[in-house]
Each structure stands twice: as structure tokens, then as C-alpha cells.
Amino acid sequence: MKTQQTDNQTSPRSEAASDECAHEEPVTVVRPLLFRGRGATQRPDGRFESQRREAFDDGWARPNEEEEDRTLPTELIIDTAKSVITRNDSPDISFSLSINPYRGCEHGCIYCFARPTHSYLGFSPGLDFETKIAYKPDAVAILRNELAKKSHRCSPIALGINTDGWQPIERKLRLTRGLLEVLAECRHPVAIVTKNSLIERDIDLLADMARDNLVKVMFSVTTLDRELARRMEPRAATPLRRLEAMRALHTAGVPVGALFAPLIPALNDHEMEAVFSAVKDCGGESAHYTLLRLPHELSDMFPAWLQTHYPGRASHVMSIIRQMRGGKDYDSSFGTRMTGEGIFAEMYAKRARLALEKLGLNQVRRELNTQAFKPPRDGPQMSLF
């Protein structure tokens, strides 16, 4: 497996090496890139780049340099766009409209299926995805214009699907708050996914919308293990804080649920029932799971992360994943890409079904209200009177 980074060294020769091996080139040990609060251990070139970089030993690596406390700052990049509403027709998801105020995500989740999208910006899906954040400063004004168009047909908008709308930088920029204010004003339904307790800041808007059945919030709860969460999703809220935020929204009358996503074989799969139970205890009315997805660059990045943090089980994790993906790291086929196939997939589906039935989750399918929508008063075209 090829990894990329700048800090590496040549491994010592074994004293027991044979004469034949003694004439071989030294083996290069490529050390992972480790930064405090960052998830990726690599900065691979994007798949659209014309050049690729390879790691090599230049002799400048200092002893124990990998143990130094290194940080990597977040860089903000202005993202210009004519539209903020994205439309899709995938049969695997329940929404056709979505909004993502940010591209890239500071949470640094190593498993994030959106990482490869950073290649479209000319950045690395690795460390660049979590340190170079593109944002749309005029997103609120663009949304108002789009909702004011006569061609707009009201349908629930999914907020925070590709990248989290409540990631840490939102505390400063407040873009998601602005978008939510427009949706609340227009009584436009919205379905939210987040893993940050910052959403508690917006309880006033969410509770107001919930009274008209205009909102539901799904929390991504991947594990209850604080240490595993710190390694997998270093800048997201801790699992306990997510559950506390879920309880706070439920108390305010906001419908909440959770996504056990992604399910990673031999890493967090044993926690499925415990996560569902915790969700129920915090007022959740629904819960679902999805299997780990490794599109494009993730098929190299995730195994490298496993080898760094969980070397003893890395090969076992990837073996089960491939058994659920037809022998490949990933299969994008509709119908199976979210759950996989084969005996392991059947086992996980059965476990989920039994746990959800026992807890009484997913008993009601909530359809958001689309009848209360009213275009913004100050749209692009002024009224005659």
C-alpha cells in the first residue's frame, strides 16, 4: 500500500540478514503525517492532478520528530456559486434537494465519503479536506433568490449531508444559522444531519419550525467510545455531547434520531445495539445504519489510517469489508452501497432489525410539511404595490 508524506526514515538492517539480502536496497519506512486534532494521516494528490508525489528519505528527518506536538491551522477559502441548492436523483437517499454551506470539514472524520470531492477543487482529499475549508459568503442571499423563483417547488431540503453545517468554523461564520433563518421565515421544511453539539445554539429556530412539522434532526453517532471517536473524528463533539444535544432538542420539541454511520466491521460494529439504546434514552424516534464507504482516494487513505492507529486489526477490518463489497474495497452499485452484500451484510441487517424492534424505534415515518411554504418577501423581483 502506498502512503504519502514528508517525514520518513530508513529502517535498520537486521543482523540476521542473509548475505543475499545484504546487497538489497534499504527498506524505506514511511511515517504517517500526524497533527494534533487532525484525522487524516496523509496528504495524497487528488485523482485529477497531472502529477503525483512519492515519499522518499531525503535524510532531513529528525529523530523522534513524529512524536513532536504539531498543529496544522485551518485555512478559509471563498467559494463562489450561483446556486446553493443541489439536486439529485439517487434512489438510495430520501431527499432530492440539499444545501452544503461548506466544502471540506474540520471534523476530520477519516471515513468521510465526501473527502474525494475536494479533488474537484484541486486540493488533497487528505489533510487538505479538513484544513482548507471553502465557504460561500453570499449563501444566504443566494438561497433567498432561489426560494423566491416561481420555478421552485417546495420539497424538504437536506442540510449538512456532504459536510457538517455545524462544524467548528460555523461558530465564527454563522452561515448555517443564516440559511436556517431563511428557511424558518419561508416555512420551508428541512432535514438535518450533524455530529456537533453546536446545533444547540439554534434551538430557537428549530423549535419554532418543529411546531409546524418543518424539521427533523439526525445526529451521527458512530461510537460511544471516546478514544475511538477522538481518533476517527477528532474535531467533532464527543459522543456524550452529541447525545446531550439530542436530548436538549427533544426536550424543545424537535424530532430527533440518529445514524450509526458508518458501521465499520471489527472496529465499531459491536456497538450498534448500544448506540441505538442510547439514542432511545435521549428521545430519539428513529435510527439507521450505513456501511463504511471507501470511494476513490479513501480506498488508500482509510487502510493507511487503520495501519497507524489499529495495526493489529487493520487486515481483518479490510478483509470483512471486501467480503461485503464483492472482493473490492468499494462497490458503488445502487441498492447495496449503503449496506453491502453477503453473509456479513445479512447479519448486520438482522441485528439492526431486532434491536430497532425491541427498542420501538422507526415506528412512525415522519413526512415533513410542504404546505406552509411561502416565498421570501424580499425576493429578486419587487411587487407592484
Rank of each mutant, 00 (worst) to 15 (best):
E367L: 06
S50T: 03
I142R: 11
C282F: 09
D225K: 12
F260A: 06
T339F: 08
T80Q: 13
Q381D: 06
V317K: 02
T28R: 13
T28M: 11
V317M: 01
R144I: 15
L259K: 00
L224Y: 04
G257C: 01
K328A: 03
S383K: 12
V275M: 11
G37N: 03
S383V: 12
P91M: 00
Y310C: 07
S11E: 13
L356V: 09
R366D: 07
A274K: 13
M209L: 08
A278N: 13
N268W: 10
S383A: 13
E285D: 04
D300F: 00
K150D: 09
G39V: 08
Q51V: 05
E285H: 06
E66F: 08
T290N: 10
W60Q: 07
N268M: 06
F260R: 05
K172L: 14
R62H: 04
P265E: 05
A81N: 08
L291T: 03
R187Y: 10
V30Y: 06
G327W: 02
A16M: 07
D128V: 07
L298S: 05
G108T: 02
I161D: 01
E68W: 14
E67Y: 10
A184G: 14
R293L: 01
P311M: 10
P73N: 03
K280N: 05
A207N: 09
A207Q: 07
L34D: 02
H296P: 03
K150A: 08
F276I: 10
R47H: 11
